[in-house]
Design a protein around this nucleic acid. Structure first.
Lengths: 131, 131
DNA sequence: CGGTATCCGGTGCGATACTG
DNA sequence: CAGTATCGCACCGGATACCG
């Protein structure tokens, strides 16, 4: 029996939606799969910051939630292809809007000093890069 | 100096967007504030599962990110009002779509047995309730 | 190639108590 | 009313090693 995924559910659709794609990597994985089918190491190359372990774990959760499909080819060397399921596809507009929102509201901070002091500190969050 | 919020940033707008509202409680808080200004304990009552500590912490982060406004009244007893900032308002369509997606695709499982075995395990996630 | 297994540190977060 | 302070542990997630 698998443990109940994260913490707990209050019953709110919002939380359910976020549980399914709200984590950094799940969203990114789904986003990358919008372009089409990807193999495991393709995804790794597309997302250099995620460890193999985490990529595997997140893919398994997405699969268990029915968001993606995992197709294993009985070959040597092994070959596994990941793609969005129909359910996963329904997230497409949401993912694109999320991406768009990030682009619009969290534009990369320029090296030059801002004209005005900037109303929020969001920009800073973009600065720290991959470890 | 405050620590750089979560883990790290790869530079992806998706992650930035999720960092700002991607956590269960941040999203819920923002969603609640769509209806209008709320006092601290009003929010607590609206979200019985979040502890006082977490509510405070999440509100502070949202404030630091410029998503919400915190207005303190110099009265006894104290009174603090939270509301969405202009930036926070820009998330409204996204939040509503997220909510809608949850409603559409993760309908509450009925006590009755499903006609077909159900293609995914998402429904289970809605079952475990607040601790 | 596409994973598991194991170890282990950091921190997210709840519980509880105290405060202006 | 609207918070801080402190404790404690679960678990998230990185590093590394091994496997079919």
């Amino acid at each position: 029996m698998r443990k109940q995924r994260h913490q707990a559910y209050t019953c709110c659709p919002l939380e359910a939606a976020l549980d399914v794609m709200g984590s950094k990597w799940k969203a990114t994985i789904l986003f990358r799969l919008l372009d089409g089918t990807r193999r495991f190491n393709e995804l790794r190359r597309l997302m250099p910051n995620v460890t193999q372990r985490m990529l595997t774990l997140q893919l398994r959760e997405l699969e268990a939630d029915g968001m993606i499909l995992r197709k294993v080819f009985a070959e040597v060397p092994p070959k596994v292809e990941y793609s969005l399921s129909d359910l996963g596809r329904t997230l497409e507009p949401l993912l694109r809007e999320l991406y768009q929102w990030g682009q619009t509201h969290i534009q990369r901070k320029q090296p030059e000093a801002s004209p005005e002091p900037a109303s929020s500190s969001i920009e800073k969050k973009i600065l720290r890069s991959s470890n």
